[in-house]
Amino acid sequence: MDLGKDKMLEMYRMMTRIRLFETQVRDLATASEIPGFVHVSIGEEASATGVCAALRPADRITSTHRGHGHLIAKGGRLDRMMAEIFGKRTGYCKGKGGSMHIVDFSLGILGANGIVGGGIPIATGSALAAVVTQRDEVTACFFGDGASNEGTFHESLNLAAVWKLPVIYVCENNGFGEFTPMQTVTSVTDIAVRAQAYGIPGIVIDGNDVLEVYRCASEAIARARAGEGPTLIECKTYRWEGHVVGEQAFLGKASYRSEEEVAEWKARCPLIRFEKFAAESGMISAAELKKIRAETEVELEAAVKFARESPLPDPAEVTDDVFSG
């Protein structure tokens, strides 16, 4: 597949935006400048980026509690995302959602979601809407390895297979459901094999290789658009950070993974990997990548400034929007 240089640079920019945004969010949470539960996906940037790069603007996604990356990859603005995490009125959800519930409907984002597996039926219904209205749209559904043990995963894959819905199920297998190693609570080594039970294709891919993710997602999306039904894509990846920022406070000295394991995965960093590819291919210069990083730093700085300086919601707004109309 010939991606073209512009597409590749766009993907590098998205991964960079995710990495820098989440690093900043982690640091702000650690410094207690932002409240609540914050789950970052540092190390997992390639799966969000590769899938969203293969989607069209009118296509939709559902995301998870670890959703900043998906939102950014689908086109979310860093300033309004950061403002939402700060709980400000200018945030995407007027300060009522927070880190776990940021959306931009105009970008086809149907939710980051605080319930593990909660987005899977919603994505399935979104794909159904495309079928009923005969719109040429695909929905990409992100979830983790933990969600693949939820009933929603199994129910939804069955339904989407029966109705041949235009949805792709993207399992970002980062090896842990919170602090529990995936293999201790999961009946299979590769979650993708569960697709067989529903008569749909299931593939395992290197989730840290953005080009492979893009290629495989593109094929699954084309299949979905052609009316051939859903695909399950398992992206093998790893989160460098904890399940939640600040988890040491309640884990204490307990550890659920080794430093060696983390280091091993850091060596497989999706960004460094792309940078190596760029250098080897000769298509993209180091200066071009450097420029993207510098531009992202400026964008992020402005986002933090915007969030800090934005007004807080008025307490009188608390009961607004319980109902529509």
Partner: peptide, 19 residues
């Protein structure tokens, strides 16, 4: 199918999808 959680959830998703 007999899958109440996903039937309801697909309803939510379809509603968000414009139906």
């Amino acid at each position: 199918p007999i899958a109440e959680l996903t039937i309801a959830g697909a309803g939510v998703g379809a509603a968000m999808g414009g139906l």
